[in-house]
């Protein structure tokens, strides 16, 4: 591939959004293929409604979730990041979510220590049957982020210079 990272669609600044009155929350959701992704599918098949500001990045399992993903999402202008997978005991791969939970535990405290507003970070377990929970989670998270507004502190840091 000749495309190099950082020069593709994606280098454009996001500052105009932070100032425009029509600001829309930007939420990134890293969700596992087997439970939460399927739960979100179910919300669709059930024609439930939720705000359209969430962008899903599918990973096979929450075990695949590397905290680097979350930092990069904030670096790319996310206002909130959700990570969701199978409930304990339900992991398609038996233990990926348990390993993920350890990473979350450590990483969330690190983010908090560094002053990241923890309302902008959310972890959940949403099963394939919990279409309603997916909808409620996105609705609630969107409301929280809307209440907080753009993640100005982080964006200011990104845009220095």
């Amino acid at each position: 591939m000749e495309e190099s990272h950082g020069t593709e669609a994606g280098t454009e600044r996001v500052d105009q959004e932070t100032t425009a009155t029509s600001w829309e929350p930007r939420i990134v959701a890293f969700i596992c293929n087997w439970c939460t992704y399927t739960g979100a599918d179910l919300a669709g098949t059930s024609r439930m409604k939720y705000p359209p500001y969430v962008r899903v990045i599918k990973i096979p399992c929450t075990g695949r979730f590397d905290p680097l993903f979350m930092i990069k999402a904030f670096e790319r202008g996310a206002d909130g990041v959700l990570v969701s997978g199978c409930h304990p005991g339900d992991c398609h791969y038996t233990a990926g979510n348990y390993n993920a939970r350890r990473k979350y535990t450590v990483f969330k405290d690190l983010l908090a220590t560094l002053g990241i507003d923890m309302d902008r970070v959310r972890f959940s377990w949403i099963s394939a049957s919990e279409g309603g929970k997916w909808v409620d989670t996105i609705k609630h998270f969107t409301e929280v982020i809307r209440g907080k507004g753009p993640f100005r502190e982080y964006r200011e840091m990104i845009d220095v210079g």
Binding site: H5, G6, E8, A9, G10, T11, E12, V14, Q16, E17, R26, V28, R55, I57, I59, P60, R64, D66, F69, K72, A73, R76, G77, A78
Partner: peptide, 17 residues
């Protein structure tokens, strides 16, 4: 689900072209 693929997705999602 390589690092490069996920990285590119994150990058693509956030940019406002």
């Amino acid at each position: 689900f390589t690092d490069e693929q996920i990285y590119s997705e994150i990058n693509a999602l956030m940019a406002v072209g």
